[in-house]
Structure formats: C-alpha cells, structure tokens
C-alpha cells in the first residue's frame, strides 16, 4: 500500500482531523487504492508542458480602493458558537 499508518496520521495532523483507529485503517486502505489509481499520471512525460496556471483569462481584475462599512460586530457574531467583548471566544490557545 502506498500509504503507511504513520503517513495517514501525519496527514490527519496537517489537516487537523481527529480520527478513530478504525477510520485510520479504513482511510489508509481507501486512500491507498485511490493513490494507486492516480499513479498512472507518472507515465506521462510532461517535461515540456507548462502547468495550467489559471482558468480566468489574462486580465488582473483589480478593484478600486473604496471603503465600505463592515457587517458590524453584532451581525458578525450572530453565527459565533461563543463570544465575549464583541469578539469570538475560544478556549485558550496555549496548551
């Protein structure tokens, strides 16, 4: 299998996903099968092919420097799971 258990755990850490042992095993198998399939891309010689940079044409589409009022703290915090002092409240950042 292309993926080891440690690699699965490393990826989960990079993506901040807490996985159960069962999930780690299952995803290891499934992701390995997918990676086996995508490996066929390696067959192609792309040494003289540029990556597809963007899909949006050649204009930069900038906007003028005009300020508009924000949503306001009250509206912004309506969806917040927790708040205090007009800010998003979260458990301590320190461990």
């Amino acid at each position: 299998m292309p993926l080891t258990l440690q690699e699965v755990e490393h990826i989960a850490k990079l993506a901040r996903l807490e996985l159960t042992d069962e999930e780690k095993t299952r995803y290891r198998e499934q992701l390995s099968a997918i990676l086996d399939h995508v490996a066929q891309l390696q067959k192609l010689d792309t040494s003289s092919v540029p990556p597809l940079a963007g899909m949006s044409g050649s204009e930069s589409h900038l906007r003028p420097d005009l300020a508009r009022p924000g949503l306001g703290a009250a509206e912004l915090l309506k969806n917040a799971p927790a708040q205090a002092d007009a800010q998003f409240k979260i458990p301590p950042v320190f461990e």
Partner: peptide, 18 residues
C-alpha cells in the same frame, strides 16, 4: 472593501465583512 483601521484603538470586529 472593509476600512483599514487602527486595530489597537478601534472597536473590535467593527471593520469586518464576510
């Protein structure tokens, strides 16, 4: 288009949009 404010003195979350 949110205004650039002095984040030290401005009311928290007063210059924020989606």
């Amino acid at each position: 288009s949110c205004p650039v404010v002095d984040s030290v003195s401005a009311e928290p979350n007063s210059a924020v949009c989606p």
